[in-house]
Nucleic acid binder design. Sequence first.
DNA 1: AGCCAGGCGGTCA
DNA 2: TGACCGCATGGC
Length: 265
Amino acid sequence: MDCGQVFRWDKADNVWTGVVQGDVVRAWQDVKTGLVYIDSRLSPAFFRSYFRFDDNLDCILTTVNKDKYMNEAIRSYRGMRLIRQEPWECLISYLLATAWSIPNIKKGILKLSRLFGKKIDEEHYSFPQPAALAMACESDLCDCKLGFRTNRIRKAAIQIIDGDIDLNELFELDYEAAKKKLMTMDGIGEKVADCILLFAFGKTEAFPVDTHVEKVIKNYYGDHEFFKEGMTKNKIGKWGRLYFGKYCGYAQQYLFYQKRLEGLR
DNA sequence: AGCCAGGCGGTCA
DNA sequence: TGACCGCATGGC
């Protein structure tokens, strides 16, 4: 929950508290049994999907465990899963993530929720609905200090309201087609599109190349034949999809997390 | 003070 | 295509 995928969970006294689907959720894990306990009005079936408990993690990690670097990341962080987020919230979150650190992304989302979401209890607010952001007057949005991201999220909200973009439709499209559609939106390039497809639409063949992953790949895999004519971010993405295969998104998340916690080796 | 943060869009060669 | 730049803001 703290690996940079989702931004609305916080830990206190070994209990994670998050806002999901307008509900305040508390979750903790028994260290000995590994069992996960969840206090929420949402159903167990919902959380099976949210935490992707139906993924056969051992099987997936075996398929992406191609070399000593991946083996090390898997050895250290085995158990980390992709999360299946709500598309709308994920879309806005990664529009905000552009050239921002993870703490800043969390703060930005918190500000948006406090201003445009619904109050759930004394300290928690739901993630704003598209209509709330679409109608947010310019000055209110500017109060959030989102910089150049402000217009991007308002535009996105309007496109959703107007039906120009139908997020549910993206589930039906394959990875390439869905990516192409997302990239028509202002502020969504390759990386942001890949994050949304991976974290909300379950497209594990997405391989987001951000600044961390770029450094990791250049450091560990720069001598691969594939890169003999240079290492652009675009090329690194293509390499990741080829090299790790249909679950490359999982590989990416393990490399990303390891890099953030340990730096380059 | 200067650089970096889960980048993107435009321009120019 | 690929390299470079401006874009807001915050933190170190």
